[in-house]
Amino acid sequence: MTREYPDEPAGEFPSPPDTVTDGEGREIRYRSGGDDDPEALVEMYLDFEAEDRAQGIPPVREEPIRDWLDVLLSDDCLNVVACHDGAPVGHATLVPDEGESYELAIFVVRPYQGAGIGTELLEHLLGYAQEEGVEQVWLTVERWNDPAIAVYKKVGFEMTSTESFELEMAIRLE
């Protein structure tokens, strides 16, 4: 499948590890890799609100969550986890596709939404990806998910396909 990417690369993004105060005054720690405590991520996804799921992820039950995280936390994927008081409250991931591009997804648990954590997670993941030499990143998002689309646009993603149910957006990192 051929995808289109913007001609111009995006600017430089901040990279993890980093600590940023969120919109509610909470100290949020951004760190790369998700494998130092996969159990904490399993817990986070078990508590994930059903209505915040998108396109079938995260899975609902524990076993499918574990299988899915096994893929995301494997060596060829890139992960950034947002933690508050030592526990994960958000997670952003890049999974390589069959070409040289990466698919992106991002998750923030309900009590931490609307405080800018999604934007920070996204920027820190893209900063980490730049360090690792990733050039092209794409994602799909449901048409009605305006808050997510706004965040992706703000960070520099451009709409590349509007032909199916889901919108496709992409960014060039270098």
Binding site: Q55, G56, T93, L104, A105, T140, E166
Partner: peptide, 8 residues
């Protein structure tokens, strides 16, 4: 998708 998202 590679990430597990369902696409129509």
């Amino acid at each position: 998708s590679p990430l597990g998202k369902i696409n129509f």
